[in-house]
């Protein structure tokens, strides 16, 4: 849903970032307004996952220049947990397993940290159980997963559902979903995409990072961006995704060659 008067949530300007001194992002520009769904596509190594990690504040990624304003605030002055509390959410491509830490307890602590920031009352154990039971429906998840350790022994699909469950609990303003579709069969993909659709509304925005068009059959983006060599090479509507599906990424090389960057 594109509305010109919508709030500018994320304003990325000429963003450069590196990992282990290897430049990955080389000047990303992107604006995301409330109500919008953006898809960032590109081949492996194009920098799309790096973009998501940088936005969430992963310590291994170093911003070398450029700015990111989140609702007018310099994102890079905030620790990872502070970004999360303010409503920036990263759905991980590979959610880590944390043995021994109860999933339910983890969800409760995280939810309350975010609620506190929104001046909402913290939920005690009992209220939280009710709250989470209701949110489980969004991803059709078995409550038994709450009793286990965070992601431990979860299948790929279960891990992704657990990610969307966290999104449902934290109610982020900007949700960045990194390759949420990878490793999912079509049924799981529908459930996860259904969750994302239910949670999207006029006051938040979603950034889908994906390699394939098939997720976009389930979630309709307002914008599609193609990343290559650490920059956004082209931006269009959803038809760009369909075009990519048919022609592949070969044209990207030509375009990069023409620009002398490849």
């Amino acid at each position: 849903m594109i509305r010109p008067d919508a709030e500018l949530l994320l304003d990325i300007t000429d963003l450069h970032a590196s990992v282990e001194d290897q430049p990955i992002l080389k000047g990303v520009n992107l604006q995301v307004r409330s109500g919008e769904i953006h898809a960032v596509m590109g081949r492996n190594g194009s920098g799309k996952s790096t973009l998501s990690k940088v936005l969430a504040g992963h310590p291994a990624y170093r911003v070398t220049s450029g700015t990111v304003l989140y609702r007018g605030v310099n994102l890079f002055e905030l620790e990872a947990e502070e970004r999360a509390r303010l409503g920036v959410f990263l759905g991980f491509q590979y959610p880590v397993e944390i043995p021994g830490v109860s999933n339910l307890e983890f969800l409760r602590v995280a939810t309350n940290a975010r609620r506190l920031k929104r001046n909402l009352e913290e939920l005690d154990t009992f209220d939280f159980e009710d709250h989470v039971q209701e949110r489980l429906k969004v991803v059709q998840m078995d409550p038994a997963f709450l009793e286990r350790s965070v992601n431990e022994g979860f299948s790929g699909g279960e891990k992704k559902r657990n990610e969307i469950l966290q999104m449902a609990l934290l109610e982020p303003v900007v949700a960045i979903l990194d390759e949420t579709d990878s490793g999912l069969d079509i049924d799981a993909l529908r459930i996860v995409a259904g969750g994302v659709n239910q949670l999207a509304n006029a006051d938040n925005a979603t950034l889908l990072i994906t390699h394939y068009q098939r997720l976009l059959d389930e979630i309709t983006p307002d914008y599609v961006h193609v990343m290559a060599s650490g920059r956004i090479l082209r931006t269009g509507g959803r038809e760009l995704a369909l075009e990519l599906e048919q022609t592949g990424y070969d044209w990207v090389d030509k375009e990069l060659a023409a620009q002398g960057v490849a």
Binding site: A56, G57, E79, E81, F92, V96, A110, K117
Partner: peptide, 26 residues
């Protein structure tokens, strides 16, 4: 691991609490 810490932090859990959660989970 750094990844575990980051995962918890990216859900709004502060550094100290994240460490203590993992130690007590252990």
């Amino acid at each position: 691991s750094e990844d575990q810490l980051f995962y918890l932090q990216s859900r709004g859990i502060g550094f100290e609490e994240a460490v203590s959660m993992m130690v007590s989970g252990f």
